[in-house]
Design a protein around this nucleic acid. Structure first.
Length: 459
RNA sequence: GUGUCUGUAGCUCAGUUGGUUAGAGCACGAGGUUGUGAUCCUCGGGGUCGCGGGUUCGAGUCCCGUCAGACACCCCA
């Protein structure tokens, strides 16, 4: 034996129970997105390196796992996110895809960062995207649909508005305010990234950085508060239904279109998720490609559970037709932590049940030579499908040497089998329901065991 | 890439001011008793104490280095 090789930094070995926990999450992702009309797609787990550098610049390379084949000339990178792949896939078939196209995917992603709480180097991420839309109304509806789908997942897993907050911001509005507060158009991106970092830095530091960018931080906060007080108000609480807020900006005014926001809120209301959401202009998101609505799902003390927004220029950037899109991503790492902390992760036994991994039958021999000889074929027979209408049963047997029926029933009980079948001879068996403890008085012919078990299971 | 803390069995942990062949519970396995799931009794496998070096007659224990993990910074898709 060579010295034990450990799993790479920031990766996880998943033993059966952990794999079941992961499935619990991925199946919820899949179920919710399908119910919301998204279709599952998938792409390669590695791409040409340039797919990522084109959008984000060379600086991103240090955050990627990239590689070149021995003797090869092309650089590849394990995917750190799905959006470029999505944009590439959409661009390739844009002409023949429905409008809008609603896609989701869940799979592994890789980032070469130091692992810490809520962040690993390999993780699962769920992405939902709505691509396309002709009118402003379409886009607003798509924004709300993305958020609604994300919220339904949280609800499905047992979280409540008391546990999580969906904070919604808007790039157009916040940039309008930035410009009004003296920022030049050219520094917009830097300013947005500064805003994204703001909660983590000192007040004075933010002030200093703002001045460096040519932004008046006090004026900015003043204007933000003004706009926030109008935008953040509930629909019914509006005294005067303002439709625009005008911000002075040197030569021309900048306009914040409140009626679009109201439309958006009506959609969130209709989707029944507005009590999860709050409008919060401090949400900026660090990513360069967001163009409109942005949002984050926040839990106290943790990193963002999910985040996303509107990216109307990206499909075009990847060679497709100019197409607006909105989407979000949710990782399994923070989500798992939140579920564990809130006591919402099912118990081991519940996971078996949910995952459909409880054995239907545990087959035991009574120790006679005829029963011993028959056991293998009974197991095989029960496992076999009897046609399209009825799948094979989940059947297990003991691998222990003991013939002690009590110990074997204990084993059956430990693995949470639904029924025990005790072979009494080569031709007959006794069925015991392990949930109720009821055991048949009459014996069942071996040939009809499958039918009996299926009937009692209810399928 | 930087900093802080932590490394003893699969898991949770004992292990005296440095002193024989490193322990317990759980888990796992074998056997025994009871043809029925709680049990009970006996036995067993499993650790170069993260790894390497140093101090010492002697290191799980002290020192240095290194690796790994957790947490924070950087960055956030």
């Amino acid at each position: 034996m060579c010295p034990a090789i450990q799993p790479p930094n920031g990766t996880r070995d998943l033993y059966p129970i952990e794999a079941a926990r992961r499935r619990f999450i991925t199946e919820a992702w899949r179920r919710v997105s399908i119910n919301h009309g998204f279709e599952e797609i998938d792409g390669p787990t590695f791409e040409h390196l340039e797919l990522y550098t084109v959008k984000s610049g060379e600086g991103i390379v240090s955050e990627l796992f990239s590689f070149r084949r021995e003797g090869g000339e092309k650089d590849f990178a394990l995917r750190p996110e799905f959006t470029p792949t999505l944009a590439r896939m959409y661009a390739a078939r844009a002409g023949s895809l429905p409008k809008p196209t609603k896609w989701f995917t869940c799979g592994p992603f890789f980032r070469a960062e130091r692992p810490q709480r809520g962040r690993l180097r390999e993780f699962l991420q769920w992405n939902c995207d709505v691509i396309g839309g002709a009118s402003t109304h379409d886009l607003v509806q798509a924004d709300a649909e993305a958020i609604a789908c994300c919220v339904e997942l949280l609800r499905e897993l047992g979280l409540t508005p008391a546990d999580v907050r969906v904070k919604i911001g808007h790039r157009e509005i916040i940039t309008a305010i930035l410009w009004s507060a003296g920022l030049s158009r050219a520094r917009t991106q830097e300013a947005l990234q500064l805003l994204d970092r703001r909660p983590k830095i000192e007040k004075g530091e933010f002030h200093k950085q703002s001045i460096l960018l040519g932004l008046d931080p006090d004026r900015f906060d003043e204007l933000t508060a003004q706009v926030q007080s109008v935008c953040g108000r509930e629909l019914e609480a509006r005294v005067n239904p303002e439709t625009h807020i005008h911000l002075p900006n040197g030569e021309s005014d900048v306009t914040v279109p409140i009626e679009i926001l109201d439309d958006f809120k009506r959609h969130l209301d209709a989707a029944g998720v507005s009590n999860w959401c709050q409008f919060d202009l401090s949400i900026a998101r660090g990513l360069a490609y967001y163009t409109g609505m942005v949002f984050e799902v926040i839990v106290d003390g943790e990193r963002a559970v999910a985040g996303g927004g509107r990216y109307d220029n990206l499909i075009e950037l990847f060679g497709g037709p100019s197409t607006p899109a909105v989407g979000f991503g949710m990782g399994d790492v923070v989500l798992s932590l939140v579920l564990q902390d809130k006591g919402l992760m099912p118990t081991d036994a519940e996971l078996l049940e949910i995952a459909g991994q409880r054995p239907d039958v545990f087959v035991i021999s009574n120790g006679t030579p005829e029963a011993d000889a028959k056991l293998g074929s009974v197991v095989a027979e029960l496992r076999r499908s009897t046609g399209r209408q009825s799948h094979g049963l989940h059947v297990r047997r003991s691998y222990k040497a003991t013939r002690n029926v009590g110990k074997l029933l204990r084993e059956a009980s430990d693995i949470r089998a639904r029924f025990a079948v005790i072979l009494e001879s080569g031709t007959e068996a006794t069925i015991k329901n392990l949930e109720t403890g009821e055991q048949d008085q009459a014996r069942t012919p071996v040939a009809s065991l499958g039918e009996q078990i299926r009937r009692r299971r209810g399928n």
